[in-house]
């Protein structure tokens, strides 16, 4: 079935390092050419927009990880020739956490991270 291709090991990873290892990413370098677009504070922890743009030539793979989620790897994308390295989705976040974008370009891995705050809310000016 199509399901057989789904990377069960990566999606089951319980830590960032474990996920990096399964994906063969080792210790990816932080790169300014990987841009992670998220809100600073989540309006709704159940629906947090996350966008990744890679300016690295030869970007072939993009993954989104939420460090403090029980299932840390949220989504991964394979980018064929002709498709831009620019994807956007929405994820669940149970608590304030760093969000990671992992990018593979020309066979090497890079990353960016950003904190997204999940708050109780209810005050205001």
């Amino acid at each position: 079935t199509a399901h057989a291709a789904w990377n069960e090991q990566a999606f089951g990873a319980k830590s960032l390092d474990a996920a990096f290892e399964v994906l063969g990413a080792g210790k990816p370098a932080v790169s300014d050419d990987v841009v992670l677009n998220t809100p600073d504070i989540a309006e709704n922890g159940a629906v947090v927009p996350v966008g990744v743009v890679s300016k690295l030539p030869g970007t072939e793979y993009v993954a989104i990880m939420i460090e403090k989620n029980p299932y840390m790897l949220a989504a991964s994308f394979t980018i064929p020739e002709g498709t831009q390295a620019e994807v956007q989705t929405r994820v669940k976040m149970g608590q304030t956490s760093d969000v990671y974008a992992l990018v593979k370009a020309d066979g090497k891995f890079y990353m960016a991270k950003k904190e997204v705050k999940v708050t109780l809310g209810g005050c205001g000016g």
């Binding site: 159940a46 947090v48 299932y71 790897l73 989504a75 394979t78 831009q84 994807v87 929405r90």
Partner: peptide, 17 residues
């Protein structure tokens, strides 16, 4: 595009590319 999702993707998933 091909993509793999885990359970952390929101209900009624959104995707833009």
């Amino acid at each position: 595009l091909s993509a793999e999702f885990g359970p952390s993707v929101s209900t009624n998933p959104y995707l833009a590319f």
